[in-house]
Every structure is written in structure tokens, then in C-alpha cells.
């Protein structure tokens, strides 16, 4: 169908159907990936209700990020969205915004970190998204994920 495209990913190597209307356009790119503007959200595991998702590049099937809902791990986390950023993604109502943070996963999962300093902001209505850099010293680029190893 014309309304869908096949998106391939390391997690879905044979591809999954994604509706074109659900593709995100990054109006401010993910730093270091300036040429890639189109992404979609894929689920890691729907059955388990995990707070992690895959942010998959549409233009490069080898590029994806693990992203997380920051408030699952950090209850008080707030990404103060500037007026300029709101305007850029066409955000009129705060409830239309979804905030994700990028996770850097290490072999030892308990060493994994999240970038709270530069969250991903998505306007679910306009499908416009961006990586913004928060202009404060409250949050770190490498904040350890608060997951504790299993006690033997």
C-alpha cells in the first residue's frame, strides 16, 4: 500500500510496515547525524511494558537509538521546552509533547547511561521532533541508569 513503507532495523531485519503518516521529521537533527531527518518509534517488547523504545532511522536501517521515558527512572525530570523549540515543532499544547532520552547501553547493563542533558522532544500531533540541549546544569550527558544488580 502507498500509505505504508517497509522499515528495516537490526531488531526487525526483514522489515516492518510503518504508516507514512507516523514517520517523525527531525527539524533539529540528532547531533552528529545532521543528514538524517526521518525516524520512527519501534517497540522493543509490547508484552512486557518496558520503558525502552527504538528510535529507528528511516533513511539508514543500520542506525537506531534506544530511547527511554525519563520519568520512569527520574520522577522529577523536566525538560523545560523553550518558546523557540515549541515554535519549531509546532507545539501549542504541552500534553502533545513526548520526551525521550537516549540510552547508551553497555555490555554490563548496570553501567548503562542516559543523556538527560539533550532529550528528544516529539510533537505527536505534527510528528515534528528535535534533539534539544537543556540550558541548565541540572542534568548530565552520562547519567547512570538507576538499575541495581540482582542480589544473589
Amino acid at each position: 500500500m502507498d500509505s505504508e513503507i517497509l522499515v528495516k532495523s537490526i531488531y526487525y531485519p526483514e522489515g516492518v510496515a510503518v504508516e507514512k503518516s507516523k514517520i517523525l521529521e527531525f527539524v533539529k537533527p540528532i547531533l552528529g547525524f545532521n543528514d538524517l531527518k526521518k525516524y520512527c518509534i519501534l517497540n522493543i517488547n509490547k508484552e512486557k511494558n518496558l520503558p525502552f523504545f527504538i528510535l529507528q532511522s528511516i533513511e539508514n536501517d543500520k542506525l537506531c537509538f534506544i530511547v527511554a521515558d525519563p520519568n520512569y527512572f527520574f520522577k522529577d525530570y523536566t525538560a523545560g521546552i523553550t518558546e523557540e523549540d515549541k515554535e519549531l515543532i509546532g507545539l501549542k499544547d504541552k500534553t502533545d509533547a513526548i520526551i525521550f532520552v537516549i540510552v547508551t547501553v553497555f555490555k554490563d547493563l548496570y553501567s548503562s547511561t542516559v543523556n538527560l542533558k539533550a532529550p528528544i522532544i516529539i510533537n505527536v500531533k505534527s510528528r515534528k521532533a528535535m534533539q534539544t540541549v537543556l540550558n541548565n546544569d541540572l542534568y548530565d550527558v552520562k547519567q547512570k541508569l538507576p538499575i541495581n544488580p540482582v542480589k544473589a
Binding site: 537490526i10 531488531y11 540528532i30 547531533l31 552528529g32 547525524f33 522493543i44 517488547n45 512486557k48 518496558l50 525502552f52 527504538i54 542506525l63 537506531c64 537509538f65 534506544i66 537516549i102 540510552v103 547508551t104 547501553v105 555490555k107 547493563l109 543523556n115 542533558k117 539533550a118 534533539q131 540541549v133 550527558v141 552520562k142 538499575i147 541495581n148 540482582v150
Partner: peptide, 27 residues
């Protein structure tokens, strides 16, 4: 931030299954 993004973009299947496993371990 650019370097952190580049590090984060090297996602493997092991990473994803590891995150899934966290749930099984009641983490």
C-alpha cells in the same frame, strides 16, 4: 553530546535482549 550520540547509536541485538532480560529479572 555528539560523541555520546555516536556511542549510543552502536546498538546491538544483545543490547536489546539484555534490556528485555531486565524485566525477567524483576529489575
Amino acid at each position: 553530546i555528539k560523541n555520546e550520540n555516536i556511542n549510543a547509536s552502536t546498538v546491538s541485538l544483545d543490547d536489546i535482549s539484555g534490556l528485555n532480560k531486565l524485566n525477567e529479572l524483576n529489575e
